[in-house]
Design a protein around this nucleic acid. Structure first.
Length: 554
RNA sequence: UGGGGAGUCGCCAAGUCGGUUAAGGCAACGGAUUUUGAUUCCGUCAUGCGUAGGUUCGAAUCCUACCUCCCCAGCCA
């Protein structure tokens, strides 16, 4: 994939303008709520914010937006921290927490009450909802809207003290119940929650709402550009209202961009949760998932993600990105970086009849076809070998360049063999394929008078190791599982195929720490915890392009 | 329906104070090279910019109207 012309996205243009107008010390932030695992959509946001910080010589905070004690916990904090670190950010910095600002936020709320811009409403949730009006009908004022300052301060203090039950009172901003923007109809900014917060414990009985917390946390941190997704666009007037009405020396600018949506997968927190809890996948780090943990386990690297996000771009248009772009980015990276080795996923035995029993042909194979710095490795070509079952056909279709009776193929890095006959068991399955090798065809030399087009991979029957290989494919079989009535019915039944009888060349042992290419099959990554065990487990990170497979389909 | 956004090739995305043949990538399709049917290379791929009018010598870019899609009525974020 060649480099495209770097043009600035709309956010960079806004920032350029701000700088032209004298702004300096740029600061950004990535503000996840610790109530779930990060996925590829978050990666876009992280890369955007930290990328902007680097580009403009500014900085970026990782701040946990933890104002809802009922859904948040430390486990999510830890996993998010490790994911951000995996992407290469916030490495030697401690993360920040909105919950550390609770005291300040409380004071800011006071400021609003003092300015008569906030009041305690003592109606129940249902009543408040009814008074809010609808999309087309304006809301009506709460009877408590004009409570005097002193009562409000007293009540708010009591809310904090825990004198009331959940739902008895809320603190509301006094804005405009007839605003066409629902967010401006006296939004709740504090509610009572008598739940233990994973960080502040039982210290607080009241918790600030997002709209009050986000903007003020940004201001406290001197964030200059607060970048969020499109659904917060109509919260911006409220964001600005809070910033304007509280005495601050920082006025962050909120900018919204379109979140990343990928075809053939799902990024909704709720749906990911369903997949995990209903055991449709094996945990949050299942390699079929678009979670960062899953992507990592599958073998996708931060640099692939970085390249991918760069190509995707940043706009305000709801876009569905084709997974093939991610796949191409992965292939691009691994084509350059992955050593080539051989493994056979579904082995069939081949006996080379004209090769003496104990003869071992020693072969020095390139670890990378285009890059000598990868070095070479030794391979032993023996009388008995295994080849891929799909590389033999009894009734070969047209243009089948592989093995069939009477046909010849080259063994990768080895000589040319010709199939003489096959041996089947009583069920008709092929037991053994018998071949003869053609002498003097090593090192790519063609046999007299013919050109061998087919080259197949193989593994020696006497020198190999057992492998378990997970063939990972797209999780869904439709491009937009979100559009299905029940997204679970769109799951791809073959998204995970376990090849339990796979074998590989023993040289694989030297390359367990990196993604390798199994020649002609794809790129595969070892599951870390199986290193050192008697059977390595590999996940297929991505297939190679397969023009033959495509041709067969058509 | 009120408000807020967005509409440029199958998927993304440049281009926007109007001016050569509307970048680039992905996908697709041809072809060349190839000890991976991989990689690489070369070629094809929008008389068209949501639609309809208008302004203009000239419009994706300006004006008008309309259409479609997304978001908002949590004491979630």
């Amino acid at each position: 994939m060649s480099e495209n012309i770097p043009t600035k996205n709309f956010i960079q243009k806004i920032i350029d303008d701000d700088i032209k107008n004298g702004q300096q010390n740029l600061k950004f932030r990535f503000p996840p709520e610790p109530n779930g695992y990060l996925h590829i959509g978050h990666a876009k946001s992280i890369l955007l914010n930290y990328g902007l910080a680097e580009e403009y010589d500014g900085s970026c905070n990782l701040r946990f937006d933890d104002t809802n004690p009922s859904t948040e916990n430390q486990e999510f904090v830890d996993s998010i921290k490790s994911d951000v670190a995996w992407l290469g950010f916030n490495l030697d910095k401690d993360p920040l927490f909105a919950s550390d600002y609770f005291e300040k936020l409380y004071e800011f709320a006071h400021e609003l009450i003092n300015k008569e811009l906030a009041y305690v409403d003592s109606q129940d949730q249902e009543t408040i909802k009814l008074q809010r009006g609808t999309l087309t009908k304006p809301g009506i004022n709460s009877p408590f809207r004009n409570r005097d300052k002193e009562t409000n301060i007293q009540l708010f203090q009591q809310m904090r003290n825990g004198d009331f039950n959940e739902g008895e009172h809320v603190l509301r901003a006094k804005i405009d119940m007839s605003s066409p923007n629902l967010n401006m109809r006296d939004p709740t900014i504090y509610r009572i929650r008598k739940i233990t917060h994973y960080r502040t414990g039982d210290k607080w009985n009241i918790f600030p709402m997002y709209d009050f917390t986000q903007c003020l946390s940004d201001a406290i941190e001197n964030v200059t550009h607060s970048i969020c997704t499109l659904e917060f666009e109509d919260h911006r007037p409220l964001y600005n209202w809070v910033i304007e009405n509280i005495d601050l020396n920082c006025k962050p600018k909120q900018i919204e961009f379109a979140r990343l949506d990928l075809s053939f997968t799902i990024t909704s927190k709720r749906k990911l949760h369903t997949l995990v809890t209903e055991k449709k996948v094996n945990g949050w780090d299942d390699p079929r998932l678009p979670t960062l943990k899953g992507l990592k386990k599958r073998g996708i690297t931060p640099t692939i993600l970085e390249r991918f996000c760069k190509l995707v771009g940043v706009t305000k248009k709801d876009a569905l990105i084709d997974v093939s772009l991610l796949e191409t980015c992965a292939r691009d990276e691994f084509d350059k970086k992955a050593p080539r080795l051989m493994a056979v996923l579904d082995p069939v035995k081949v006996i080379i009849e004209n090769l003496p029993e104990n003869e071992e042909i020693s072969i020095e194979a390139q670890n990378h076809p285009k890059d000598k710095t990868f070095g070479t490795r030794k391979l032993k070509l023996t009388k008995e070998i295994f080849i891929e079952s799909t590389d033999f056909e009894e009734n070969p279709p047209k243009k089948f360049f592989r093995l069939s009776v009477g046909k010849s193929v080259r063994l990768r890095y080895g000589f040319v063999i010709t199939c003489t006959r096959i041996d089947k068991d009583q069920n008709g399955n092929i037991n053994t394929i018998y071949c003869n090798y053609i002498p003097k065809t090593l090192n790519g030399v063609n046999p007299e008078g013919q050109k061998i087009k087919g080259i197949i991979h193989w593994v020696s029957a006497s020198e190999n190791m057992k492998l378990k290989v997970n063939l990972i494919d797209r999780l869904f079989s439709v491009a937009e599982p979100n559009r299905e009535n029940d997204f679970l019915t769109a799951l791809n039944p073959t998204s995970l195929v376990e090849m339990a009888n796979a074998i590989g060349e023993t040289n694989l042992l030297e390359f367990v720490s990196q993604t390798v290419q199994f020649e002609r099959l794809g790129y595969f990554t070892v599951e870390n915890q199986t290193i050192g065990s008697d059977c390595l487990v590999y996940n297929r990170t991505i297939t190679l392009r397969d023009s033959w497979g495509k041709m067969k389909k058509n």
